[in-house]
Amino acid sequence: MSMKITRRTFLKISGATAAGTVIGGLGFDLSPAVVYAQELRIKGAKETTTICCYCSVGCGIIVHTDAKGKVINTEGDPDHPTSEGSLCAKGITLYELVTNPKRITKVMYRAPYSTKWEVKSWDWTLTEIAKRIKKSRDAVFMEKNAKGQVVNRCDGLAGIGSCHINNEEGWLYQKFLRSLGIVSVEMEARL
């Protein structure tokens, strides 16, 4: 969903304050240059709204992407009623997070007793994970407990995380874990 407010109207709303500071600090008016420079960086960019990934104040962020779909800028969403365009130190660096060169972009595998990572394919990895899950589950799955009560539980497996995934993802994750019989399901709210 694209924003209805344009970059230009945003600058009209909030740019004037920033420009005022510039005049105060340097003694001459840089505001046209600042506005021009800011416009160049995101000229023709597509605006998409999101909500910050850090704390749960739920601040609005606009993400700018260029014609090739590359993220070129992120900034506070002035239309958002909670944050009104403001962001904290973390929220304001969302661009550095999502475009971070240190992100993992391939599946990695560490074999038992190995000293290093190996790059693997998704298909190999998912197949191997499914085998591990099945082996572990089949080894310890308990249909009935010592009292003979039906429990359909798997105490030898655990799954944790995460409260920064989306609701829909969380719903799927807990549904999946519980379908395996896992009861050791926990996440950050416990900590």
Partner: peptide
């Protein structure tokens, strides 16, 4: 409660908790 993570409320609601 000033919750610490962006969706700790939602994931608590969806109960990834034992």
């Amino acid at each position: 409660a000033l919750r610490g993570e962006s969706n700790v409320q939602g994931i608590t609601d969806h109960s990834i908790l034992f």
